[in-house]
Structure formats: C-alpha cells, structure tokens
Amino acid sequence: MLRGLWSAASGMAAQKLTIDVIANNLANVNTAGFKKSRTDFQDMMYQTISEAGATTETGGQIPVGIQVGMGTMPVGVHKVFGQGDFEETKNELDLAIEGKGFFKVISNEEEAYSRAGNFKLDADRNIVTPNGDKLQPEMTIPENTVSISIDGNGTVTTFDPEGTGTSLGAIELYTFPNPAGLFSQGHNLYRATDGSGEGVSGTPGSDGVGTIIQGFVEVSNVDVVKEMVSMIMAQRAYEINSKAIKTADSMMQIVNNISR
C-alpha cells in the first residue's frame, strides 16, 4: 500500500512545484525582459515484479511483465526564452533585443546577463540598469549631450547642442549554447553556468545575436491565458493525487479493521 501512497505524494509535490512556478510567472507578467519558466517532469524508477520474457514454472514465457512505478519527479524548471512583445516607450535609453542575445552587465563585480533593456544614466552619466549595474562595454555619455542614438548594430552616437555626433562605440550582445541552463539571480539578471556554456559575444545585427531596437522595451513573454490553463491542469492533478492518498489511507484502515 505504501508504494501507492508515496507515488501520490510525489504527484502532489510535483503539482505544487508547478503552481509555484506559475505563480512566479504571473507575478512577473509586467516585468520588462522577464522570461517565463516551465517545469518538466519524468516518471521515477520502476519496481519490476515480474520480468517480460522470463521463463515460467511450466516452461512458458511471461509475455508481459509487471512493473510498478514510484511516482513522478521534476527534472527541470527552465526558462523559456521565447521573444516577448515590444512596447514603445520613446525613451532613448530603452533598448529591446529582437533575437537571442543578452546584454552583459557587471553586478557586484561579477559578470551577469540580462534581456531587460530599460537602461538609465547614473550620476556619473554611465549607462546602467535600474539597479545601477553598468552595461558592458562601459559607456559614459559626455556632458552637454542633447540626444543619444543607438542603431540596430548597437553603435551609440551622442549629439551635442550644435548637432555634432560623437560615436561612443558599440554595445555587444552575448549568446549561449544552452540559454535554458542559465542561472536566474533575480533582478532580471542571469549568470552563466557550466550547463549554459560560456557567453559568446557578437555584434548586434549579425552573428545571430539579434538586433537592438531603440525606444522600445521587451515586455515579459508570459501569456496569462496559457498560465491560467496550466494552473487549472496543475490544480486538478493535485486534487486527483490527494484523492489517491485518501484512498490509500482508507485501504489501510480496511486492513486494520480485518481483525477486530
């Protein structure tokens, strides 16, 4: 009896994890550059009670064996890096990436990557994230700049009141062999891991890293309807597993009542 009880418990734990992930997705439905997460499950190991193809006492062959499973297990909660929608902001430091690349920033003296392009200027006129992490390569906007133009290839040009342009260099984007293996550190930042591989730099507009669009931010790629459907599925699966636990409990009660 206990096997079934534990299978059902693993089912409940799995659905709880799904709900946790969905809740986080829904909470970030308006977070710039947010990528939704997804849980993936696999079945746990099986206990083989009789092996298919084994010889029986009478010399025949068992055509079909008996295997009892031990429930389900989560194998991964991973980010789905589908493109989010673009929202026009007309803010000249709002940059959206159309494609697979990431911005690189330095956060707490460590390299981190981000899709959120809602950049700001700090007191020293460096381009930074809303948390103050500097965009790489570092760029300082000169004084008396009236406008900043950033083209699709990431080239940053500033204009002074006379209309003279100064090029500050280009923003680089980074891609990963396996972006789903990136570690989410919160604050819209990701860190490279052994699973994701090293970030490969590229020039926006070529090298397959995507292009930069100025004046837009990429909004979250969470689809509320889809999340709701997943939530219903998870909740019902949770419910049915709780029924299995209840049944297991009643069955054990029956066993206990055989002799009174």
């Binding site: 009896m1 096997r3 079934g4 009880l5 299978s7 059902a8 693993s10 089912g11 799995a14 659905q15 799904t18 993936d40 499950f41 696999q42 079945d43 009670i49 008996i66 295997q67 009892v68 499973g69 031990m70 429930g71 389900t72 599925m233 998870a234 699966a237 049915i240 597993n241 299995a244 049944t247 297991a248 069955m251």
Partner: peptide
C-alpha cells in the same frame, strides 16, 4: 493493491511529458 499502486503512479504522472500509462 498492485492495481491501486499502478493507478496511483499513473495519477502522479498526469502531467509528465510523453508518459504512457500502465
């Protein structure tokens, strides 16, 4: 009991990709 355990495992894997029930 064996049947119940099989059912419980199927239920636990209701949202497992590509799972085939027993």
């Amino acid at each position: 009991q064996l049947k119940f355990e099989t059912v419980a495992n199927n239920m636990a894997n209701m949202n497992t990709n590509g799972f085939k029930k027993n």
